[in-house]
Nucleic acid binder design. Structure first.
Lengths: 230, 230, 230, 230
DNA sequence: CATGAATGAGGCTTCATTCAT
DNA sequence: GATGAATGAAGCCTCATTCAT
């Protein structure tokens, strides 16, 4: 994990003096990252070739290796970028809110819209499990961390029920991710209003502290059909 | 889609002594499938090589092509097998149950235990999105279909609230899948009791028809923190 | 060292049954070895390319890797072959001889003729120091071993003076090797008769037990010019 | 050959403060040569890269081409340097001596100590055969020239026997070079005293004019074992 | 059916060298 | 003179697939 923590978005270029060449290099690097985003999304990591990538970035093949050591490295860079950007968008959207309903909707929709707007980048993440499982795990653990923090706070304030926060964090991440896949990725639209409503309602009721009742009654009369779930 | 429907139900468990002539062939085919499961899980589809696969199956490389046309084909076969086996296990476990709480727990736990017991096969599915997105989508659509059917029924019987069933189906699939990843795949254990409890509680309350209240009040006092979700 | 000892000249091919295919494989392998000998000699190890090598062997590039794992591996195989062949020729030529003068001349000339006849293979050895220094060392250590054995015997029989046998072994190997380079490799001929005579005379006197005299006199009147020697 | 003659004697040891303008350039050039010596010795010519070389010299890659036209060129420069330095050391050590025994020992040991002290530079020479065979041959021919001159003199003075001087020159160069490899290069020490003694004794007797006897008797009773020699 | 040698396209990467600053 | 980004040719090697036995 620690190996990813350190390496963030700063320019890798040494740049002894602030020569203009640094700018040129940085621009090339950016072009490569953008091309990679597109090419990985279109072909997948393994079927994507460096030569296709550099063709799109309009640089020579060798130039790639001036900026990245391997195909894996630029891939990881993209995943980190995604992780960073998504988290920032979510925080900026959610943190100012105090009303629970708003926060939820906004956070959820921010995520969905992110997936939609940045389809390509988000696709890269999805393949990460196969390309670099450790990084993939790191991504979710970091996300879960923040989530857990938020949930604990809300539990302390009795805004939501006391449940295992990690369990709930993963549950919600999974939930949102699958909905994002179904509509933002597959269908390339935001989910229809009633879908958003249903999800929000499901989540809010699932967490609502008012729902607390004697355990005996909790599950007495409903049956959740579970024919197939994973 | 049709391309998967057709081939999906061949005899996976051949009679060892039925047809003396076809016997050896079928055994070889099985050995290849088992080797493929292990090799794909260990290396991933792209890094796995036919030669490694046949080495494990203890057959010559050429033998592979007697039984499968391409590397993709055996991969698809495995995904279909998974789809089939998982669905069967779930049905056998859940269908007899009438109590809602039991059904839920059992279904959820059946899934988790499936992932745990058949780690390798399940890993294959996870890579399917990158190898054959169409098949991946088909897998989830089929799963969702059954799920939706069950949800509709439960709604009709007023065992759960009336929500968009497809939305809920995907939400729950995502939820379970992520929990399965977190504990069954990463940690290689069943989730601890309190995690199972929290998830079950969250889901049941999320669906409980008793929770219905005037929309105005629903979300008045709690804030779900959404710093990062997916 | 030990890593080379074990791997000798046997066919690497597994060959469960003695199918004719084994022969075909062995023939291909031989063609590759022969091509390698020529190509390495012509271009040197580093400038030689697998594609040139396979072109000469009239097989596809990929075929190379059916028989050898890397470029280094086929190179090592050639060095081992050289080591083996040369040692055999020397033994067959020298062992039957009892007369010292004959043995010397014959051994020396056998070596020179070997270099001449198998120029290509011998060139491969010369590059070995740069390609695989360990193997190169092994080659000389093995050669020296045999040499030392012979020298000890001769000393025991008082056919030659008692000197450090390892020192003399390396001295003689160096001597012969340099002469081989000068005439057999550079000039592509056997050295002229008087060169052979001079070397033989030098070596025989250098070793002759009759030369033993009081140390004081040994070096009293001659000066060996040493302006440059390595 | 002529292509090496011309460039061989530039000022290798520039005055650090003589010409203020050229100073920096010459210093950079030196740094490159020193780095090259280390890098070629460590990796060998082919595996050494200009980028590694400039990294060690702490200059930019492009700087290399300000001072040398190609990778081969700096390599050749090093060989010439070696040739020059070694010859100088030998002359300085040997020329003042008159006693034959002293001269021999001193020359031989000077060479061995040179190899030991300047391991890296000497390693460069050893690879020269593969990198630039013509230069390699030139190196030995020059060395042999001087050697032959010295031998002729000694023969004229009847300090040593009349033998083909070129043959003896190459014989002795080979002898010394192999001993240098065995001890100075491989073992990184000077050879033990008895090894030096044995070699010296062998060489002196080999050349000693006192040994002259009727040809019939010369080799009548000793057998030099020659099992393996190159 | 089974075998395993042969194929050849294609990928990643290295690296000497150039050139604008 | 020094810099370092850019170049593109070339190499090694992998691997899915074919085919003669």
């Amino acid at each position: 994990m620690s190996k990813f923590e350190s390496a963030s978005q700063e320019a890798q270029v040494p740049a002894r003096k602030d020569v203009p060449m640094k700018d040129r290099a940085e621009a090339t690097r950016q072009r490569l990252l953008e091309a990679a985003e597109a090419v990985f999304a279109e072909f997948g990591f393994y079927r994507a070739s460096i030569s296709e990538l550099t063709r799109r970035a309009r640089v020579a093949q060798g130039t790639f290796y001036v900026h990245f050591r391997t195909k894996e490295e630029i891939f990881r860079e993209l995943v980190r970028q995604l992780s960073h950007d998504l988290r920032r968008e979510l925080q900026e959207a959610v943190v100012p809110l105090v009303d629970r309903k708003d926060a939820e909707r906004v956070g959820f929709e921010t995520f969905l819209s992110f997936v939609l707007r940045r389809r390509n980048l988000y696709s890269v993440l999805r393949e990460c499990e196969s390309v670099d499982p450790e990084l993939y795990q790191w991504y979710y653990e970091r996300l879960a961390e923040g989530y857990v923090r938020g949930l604990r706070q809300a539990m302390a304030r009795e805004q939501i029920r006391r449940l295992n926060p990690e369990a709930i964090a993963y549950a919600l991440m999974g939930l949102f991710q699958m909905v994002g896949m179904r509509w933002s990725l597959w269908q390339r639209t935001m989910p229809p209003e009633d879908v958003l409503e249903s999800i929000a309602s499901f989540v809010l009721h699932g967490l609502d502290p008012a729902e607390e009742r004697p355990p005996g009654e909790t599950t007495s009369d409903a049956t959740v059909p579970l024919e197939g779930e994973g």
